Simulated scan of single mutants.
Amino acid sequence: MFNPPLLPGMPDFHDSVEYLRHHRNLSRESTAQKAGFSSSYLNQLIGQRKTPGTAVFDKLVEFFGLDLDPCRHLEDLLQPSGSLESTDELRRRLVNHGVQAHLDWLDQREILGAYTDPLQTVLLANQVLHRMMPGLADCDYNIIRWMLTPIARDRVYGWHGELLDLVRHL
């Protein structure tokens, strides 16, 4: 059974390479040798968080047999994080675009409606959502934080699976 190492923090390129290496039950030395570069370079890559050149990146992708999606994921992990607009700014934009009228229309039909940011913070929502998620304001309107509350556990059918899906998506 594969038992990957527990790596601290958010995953990044270096942790992902380490994960893939462990998944194959290989040492750093044998991974580097089989991928076609030196073990000291792999140690720098993982241990010192060095950014690989294109040739080494391509060798790792080929060695690990990664198809398009995992390869793109590794490429994305090498890019610096983008900054997110503040929730206040995103809310202002939604108000300026007049989306409340659409939320009101959904409310009249008892259809849940909300606009969220990438971190699952509710920017604007209709009354149906607020009835379905009491206490959301106490969680700074963050759905993930709300899902960790006892009320969410009681109200959400299949709570555990829904929580896992939200975390995966995040």
Results as ranks from 00 to 15, higher is better:
163 L>W: 01
109 R>K: 10
168 R>I: 00
103 L>R: 05
49 R>C: 12
63 F>H: 09
145 R>P: 05
67 D>A: 05
44 Q>K: 13
54 T>P: 03
158 G>W: 01
101 A>T: 10
147 M>E: 00
45 L>I: 02
92 R>V: 09
63 F>T: 06
157 Y>Q: 11
29 E>D: 12
154 D>N: 15
144 I>C: 12
167 V>A: 14
21 R>M: 12
114 A>Q: 14
135 G>T: 02
120 Q>H: 14
32 A>E: 10
131 R>I: 07
79 Q>S: 13
6 L>M: 08
53 G>S: 09
110 E>Y: 15
22 H>N: 06
50 K>L: 08
88 D>N: 08
114 A>V: 08
88 D>W: 09
112 L>D: 05
72 R>Y: 04
105 W>Q: 05
163 L>Y: 03
46 I>L: 07
59 K>A: 12
157 Y>W: 14
30 S>A: 11
90 L>N: 07
13 F>E: 01
4 P>A: 07
137 A>H: 07
69 D>N: 01
135 G>I: 02
164 L>R: 00
91 R>P: 03
57 F>W: 11
168 R>N: 11
130 H>N: 10
6 L>S: 11
147 M>S: 03
37 F>G: 04
24 R>V: 13
69 D>F: 00
165 D>L: 02
123 L>I: 14
139 C>G: 07
74 L>A: 02
140 D>S: 14
20 L>T: 11
136 L>Q: 04
149 T>H: 02
79 Q>A: 11
133 M>R: 07
53 G>F: 03
27 S>C: 09
58 D>T: 14
140 D>M: 13
132 M>T: 03
12 D>P: 02
22 H>S: 05
140 D>C: 10
23 H>F: 13
22 H>C: 06
12 D>E: 06
112 L>H: 10
156 V>S: 02
132 M>I: 05
51 T>K: 15
124 L>C: 13
63 F>C: 07
62 E>G: 15
33 Q>D: 15
119 L>Y: 06
160 H>M: 05
11 P>R: 00
31 T>N: 06
19 Y>E: 04
36 G>C: 04
49 R>V: 07
29 E>L: 12
137 A>G: 03
80 P>E: 02
25 N>G: 10
81 S>I: 03
104 D>P: 05
45 L>F: 05
1 M>N: 13
79 Q>G: 09
109 R>T: 05
59 K>E: 02
113 G>P: 03
93 R>T: 01
132 M>K: 12
121 T>K: 03
55 A>E: 10
116 T>C: 14
70 P>T: 00
54 T>I: 14
167 V>E: 15
107 D>R: 04
113 G>D: 12
115 Y>C: 10
77 L>H: 00
127 Q>P: 03
41 Y>F: 13
161 G>W: 08
129 L>H: 09
103 L>C: 09
157 Y>N: 13
169 H>F: 15
98 G>F: 10
165 D>W: 01
145 R>H: 07
89 E>V: 01
153 R>Q: 12
